[in-house]
Design a binder for these strands. Structure first.
Lengths: 334, 334
DNA sequence: CTGAAAGCGCTTACAG
DNA sequence: CTGAAAGCGCTTACAG
């Protein structure tokens, strides 16, 4: 079966390619009913389907956007992506998803790949090492939106959780219940990744507001692999923490592994509160109290802003940081 | 910033477009060192990046494959997709992922969209209502591979878990531990979806081999929303089940919700075994025994077969069903 | 109301 | 060793 092209349809219907093209693009202004029917029939009989590659080349747009997530293993990413897809579907846009695995080189290659594929715009959960590349894109008025992370020196719209609020919700709900020896474990700060820093800052602020003494030995920013040992160490302390805040879903999982292995009873022996409303929170034993990020809203907003930029003839360079509000999911682990 | 094209580079370097194209495609056979350097420089100075849309139009291939998953909410899908991406990356292929949400219409639209985008091949977790469309693709020698589901009348390679083995592993491990009142809950069979049917068949076979009487009132194929009521009903029975097999990850979650709500103790009051090694199995309380599908191997095999077909000049129509072996993850819930 | 022609940015056989 | 020319399958201004 050879590929059927517009030329074949035109010939079969006895009209010109231009007319077929008009038909496909629903520009029926002056088209006679007869022509319309003949083209419709020809398309059906030949089983024609248009080549959008050719169309994109000519039109210089692809109706496709690219999404580069920093790490697809976080539930946060999948949920945000889901929302982006919904909004794009509604607007007849397609989405290509790439996973940078928190690797700036991979991120760079994906940006180049997506540019080569002529996507109309980009939503990125950025790493912090491609600042220059991002600046170039912005200088070229290329539609770009960041999610989750603010990069210094990159003047672009960013949509993220209000991380300080998230930690205030967490700390306040623990303090209300009388917890004082509160520990926070986040991923490493060295990489200057926004949520981590903001969550730590938020933690300090909220603790101060509650006038709880912060014990520096209970605040850790470590790699996933180190969570276990940091935790063992803290639990072996003379005055161990009575409550634990997990900075994200994967840290929470590490914590729960140890809780399980040691048979620690939640919340009697240790209260556990996670940032990110993991899927198993509801039916875990006990059900886990979490702070849910507004993932759907973040994805929705990011897609809406990006599509708006794409539709504008000339993207203006205004930009803004949108902090969306998290929600406490009070369950039984604190 | 205007888009730089190959013509600009050629002019800047003082050579023809053909030569630039040769350079980009690393056909250096006869190219003088001088020319090479001039082109290299021109590319850098102008910040040129090739337009792969134009390239694809000319070459009639995109080095991109499409993947249509039946339902992205299953961990199974994400894991298989991850493997597909890895293999494609290694082979410089790109992947466009679409989620059909178990909706044949959506599936059809995605197939058409991906065809329009001229993807070089398709990996599909098929619904059973687009038989004709699939047959057309095959008749046209279009590279196609199915994952997870066999569709009657569609002669194509299928990669899936050996579902009968999966249920034999499940049943045998329960029987070994003395369980006799074993219940199975799967998703509805009406849709003729392979794993569901095979798992049920596998259950019957394994139970017979073990010479355990099958109680039909403990075998259910129901919608996700009905899992709760079916379960309540069974547990209220005079002789309630002592062990429960969840046909997939989402059914398992429904079961665990009820277990949690009623404070049922696992495995003392009820043993629970899930098909699909969910991420929380390891640190759940108690850790959950599961049968893990060989997700990575399935994705890898599917991608390898598809890429092989794409590289063959003329796809032959041989086809085969590959059943890959599942693995029992023995933990503490049985 | 419809068609001929140019052009999107590449690649590739062919000529020299 | 390099270039001129044709063509991939569309869209679009323009002419009639």
């Amino acid at each position: 079966m050879k590929k059927i092209t517009m030329a074949n349809v035109a010939e079969h219907a006895g009209v010109s390619k231009s007319t077929v093209s008009q038909y496909l693009n629903e520009r029926f202004h002056y088209m006679s009913e007869d022509t319309k029917i003949r083209i419709e029939l020809a398309i059906k009989e030949l089983g024609y389907s248009p080549n959008s590659i050719a169309r994109s080349l000519r039109q210089k747009r692809t109706s496709t956007i690219g999404v580069i997530v920093s790490n697809i293993l976080h539930d946060f990413s999948t949920q945000v992506v889901r929302a982006i897809e919904d909004i794009c579907n509604e607007n007849s846009f397609h989405v290509i998803i790439c996973n940078a695995d928190d690797d700036p080189d991979k991120e760079k290659r994906y940006i180049e790949m997506l540019q080569a594929k002529q996507v109309d715009g980009l939503i990125v959960f950025p790493t912090s090492d491609n600042t220059e590349l991002f600046q170039e894109l912005i200088a070229a008025h290329y539609p770009l939106v960041f999610v989750d992370r603010v990069i210094e020196g990159v003047a672009v719209d960013v949509i993220l959780t209000d991380n300080e609020s998230a930690l205030r919700l967490a700390v306040d709900s623990l303090v209300e219940r009388g917890y004082k020896e509160i520990s926070l474990i986040t991923a490493p700060l060295i990489e200057h990744i926004t949520p981590r820093g903001e969550r730590k800052d938020g933690f300090y602020k909220a603790m101060n507001e509650q006038q709880i003494t912060i014990r520096e030995d209970l605040v850790h920013s470590v790699q996933l692999e180190e969570v276990q040992s940091v935790l063992s160490q803290m639990l072996a302390d003379e005055v161990p923490p009575t409550a634990l805040i997990a900075g994200n879903d994967r840290i929470l999982q590490e914590i729960l592994k140890q809780v399980q292995a040691r048979g620690i009873s939640i919340p009697n022996e240790l209260a556990v509160l996670g940032i990110d409303d993991v899927r198993f929170a509801e039916f875990f034993n006990p059900p886990l109290t979490t702070v849910a990020q507004p993932t759907y809203e973040i994805g929705k907003k990011a897609a809406e802003i990006l599509l708006h930029k794409i539709k504008e003839a000339h993207t203006n360079l205004d930009h803004q940081i949108y902090r969306l509000h998290p929600e406490l999911k009070l369950r039984a682990s604190i």
